[in-house]
Simulated assay, not measured.
Amino acid sequence: MARRRDLEGHRERLSAATWSVLAEHGLAGLTLRAVAERAGCSTGLVLHTFPDKQALLVHARTLLHERTAARADAAQESGSEPLDALRAVLMQVASGSDDKREEARVWVGFLAAALADPELARLHRAHNRAFLRRIRQLVAACRPDWSPERVARSATTLVALVEGLNALAAVDLDTYSAAAQREAIEAALRQIRAERPLSPHGDTGSTAGSGVSG
């Protein structure tokens, strides 16, 4: 049992070191030696957990997904109404802080690497589709009167919007500022909020959360 705890602690330390190297040096700087130096251990110890750089890249890509999925879970739970939850999930993708822009640069690096790496491409598709399913469910909750096809189209548009803004902001924050990203997301949400079906009380449903999130 103690050995298992030691192994888990070692892996957590290497995970933290992996993300630290990624954030500072990008995908090109992610090497077994760099992770070992950041973790304060030998390269051999890193190789005991990750047999080669490919395994390290797969771990780093999975780590990125886990970080963003946990943040999306928290954002979704913060919304009292479906539209609030949708807004919160979309807004947490926007790269309005240094940490988020750092994460966006890492994401763009993995996307570029996936073009030539089938395993990274598989992971990218799986993680992106998981996010798309989340958005599709939220759109369906906002607009139960829409057909599944319309919900799917809207969700795909929203995911493409926020991922595109995130990637573009990573290299051109002057044009794709945090404020510009928020306004683009709000404009897309207005299309979902417009002409909402009547509630049982005869109004058009809750308007809570219609302002821009922080």
Rank of each mutant, 00 (worst) to 15 (best):
D84M: 13
Q76S: 06
W107E: 09
R67H: 04
A74Q: 15
A69F: 02
Q92Y: 13
S97C: 12
L63D: 04
M91C: 12
D98A: 15
R71K: 13
H65Q: 09
V106C: 06
F110N: 01
W107K: 07
R87F: 09
H65Y: 15
A88S: 15
F50C: 01
L90N: 07
A72D: 11
A60F: 00
A72S: 14
S97P: 10
D98I: 10
S95V: 10
S80Y: 11
A75L: 02
V93N: 12
T68K: 13
S78M: 02
G79F: 01
V93R: 15
H65C: 03
P118A: 02
A70F: 01
F50K: 01
R87S: 13
H59K: 05
S80A: 12
L83E: 09
L115D: 11
R71V: 03
A113S: 09
E77H: 13
A74W: 05
D98N: 10
E77M: 08
L115T: 09
A70V: 00
A104Q: 00
Q76H: 09
K100W: 12
L115I: 04
P51L: 05
V89T: 07
S95E: 12
R61N: 07
L86W: 07
A112N: 09
P82R: 02
D73F: 02
L111R: 14
V58P: 04
L64V: 06
L111M: 10
R67Q: 04
Q76N: 01
L57Y: 14
R61W: 05
A88L: 05
F50V: 02
T62N: 13
A114I: 07
D98S: 13
R101P: 01
P118W: 03
L83S: 08
A104I: 01
T62L: 08
E66Q: 14
D99P: 04
T62H: 14
A85Q: 02
A94Q: 15
E81V: 05
P82D: 03
S97K: 12
K53H: 13
D73P: 02
S95M: 10
A88P: 07
E103W: 11
Q54G: 06
D84R: 14
S95H: 13
A116W: 12
H48F: 11
L64R: 11
D117R: 09
G96E: 14
T68F: 05
H48Q: 11
L64E: 12
M91V: 13
D52Q: 01
A69R: 08
W107M: 06
A116K: 13
R87I: 02
V106Y: 00
F110A: 02
E103C: 06
A72T: 07
H48P: 01
R101L: 15
R105N: 02
H65M: 03
L111C: 06
A70L: 03
V108L: 12
F50H: 12
S95W: 14
D98W: 13
A55G: 05
W107L: 07
L111K: 12
K53C: 00
H59D: 06
P82V: 03
H65W: 15
R87V: 03
T68V: 09
L63W: 00
T49F: 11
V89D: 00
A60K: 01
V93Q: 15
K53L: 11
A74Y: 08
A104V: 02
R71Q: 13
R101H: 05
A113V: 06
A94E: 14
